[in-house]
Amino acid sequence: MPRFYCAICRYPLNACLCASVQPISPMTQLVVLQHPSEVEHKKNSVRVLSLVVAETQVYVGESEADFNGLREHLTACNKPIYLVYPSEQSVSVEQQPINPDCVLLLLDGTWRKAFKMLQLNPWLTQYPAVHLAEGYESRYRIRKSSRSDSLSTLEACAYMLSALDPRLDVQPLMTAFDAMVELRIKAMPSTVQARYQNSNKPNCETK
């Protein structure tokens, strides 16, 4: 039986997110390097991110050659560029003054895949790395991670944008994200739904 999709949000009609999407236009340019395995994933938070922040740029790939177009774009960019990735060299975005009129590069994939993408793209290390301070909790109940500090790519973007520009209302991102999560849970068998609805342990991976 064929499935019908919304022409705007591209989700199935019975899971349309349009009613929960309120676009925002942050000063910060969001650029997502997305692992190919995430593109068609039903729980892909970048799809929701792109609905709320239409200017989001998504480049799909894994190897250095896959991102040649992005590298050319960044070379011509006249804004500060930061890589969002926690490491020994990264600095907390809350503890240093960063002009929100900048570019944030985010790796979209599981921790393992994101690490592999970083290893395959050493050119990313030319950009200063930033991370979020501790204390953020994920609302991504439908994807699990072995790391307690995991956030979905959308959540990481929302918290980053809020830290860079406290005047920006990022609630539309979280509203659309929560709607997507609830719709995914409702699509599950009733026995599985109960497990997620009764769980108070938010788990996620960056994706």
Score class of each variant (00 low, 15 high):
125 T>M: 07
132 L>Y: 02
114 A>R: 02
144 K>H: 10
143 R>A: 12
143 R>N: 13
120 L>P: 04
113 K>T: 08
110 T>G: 10
148 S>M: 09
134 E>N: 15
143 R>L: 10
131 H>R: 06
162 S>A: 01
139 R>H: 00
123 W>F: 15
110 T>R: 14
148 S>D: 10
147 R>F: 14
152 S>R: 10
114 A>N: 03
143 R>Q: 14
119 Q>P: 01
135 G>C: 04
139 R>G: 01
116 K>H: 06
147 R>I: 10
153 T>W: 02
154 L>I: 10
125 T>H: 09
112 R>F: 06
110 T>K: 12
140 Y>W: 03
141 R>I: 07
119 Q>K: 14
154 L>V: 09
140 Y>P: 04
123 W>M: 13
144 K>A: 08
123 W>I: 08
144 K>N: 06
161 L>D: 05
131 H>P: 03
138 S>W: 07
164 L>R: 04
163 A>P: 14
136 Y>E: 06
147 R>H: 15
156 A>M: 02
142 I>W: 06
148 S>P: 07
111 W>Q: 05
164 L>E: 04
166 P>Y: 12
131 H>Q: 07
163 A>R: 14
146 S>M: 13
126 Q>S: 14
121 N>P: 11
149 D>L: 10
129 A>P: 10
142 I>N: 08
119 Q>M: 11
113 K>W: 10
145 S>R: 03
111 W>C: 00
144 K>Y: 09
151 L>E: 11
150 S>A: 15
121 N>R: 13
136 Y>I: 05
135 G>T: 02
162 S>P: 00
124 L>K: 02
147 R>W: 11
116 K>N: 00
159 Y>W: 03
116 K>L: 05
152 S>P: 10
159 Y>A: 03
129 A>I: 03
127 Y>M: 12
128 P>A: 07
111 W>F: 05
130 V>C: 06
160 M>I: 07
138 S>E: 05
113 K>N: 15
119 Q>D: 09
123 W>P: 01
159 Y>V: 00
164 L>D: 08
143 R>W: 10
144 K>G: 05
153 T>M: 00
110 T>L: 09
152 S>H: 13
119 Q>Y: 08
131 H>D: 07
151 L>C: 11
111 W>D: 01
122 P>R: 03
122 P>F: 02
122 P>V: 01
138 S>F: 04
112 R>S: 10
142 I>T: 08
139 R>N: 02
128 P>Q: 07
165 D>H: 08
149 D>N: 12
127 Y>P: 11
115 F>T: 08
126 Q>A: 14
144 K>R: 09
142 I>Q: 02
166 P>K: 12
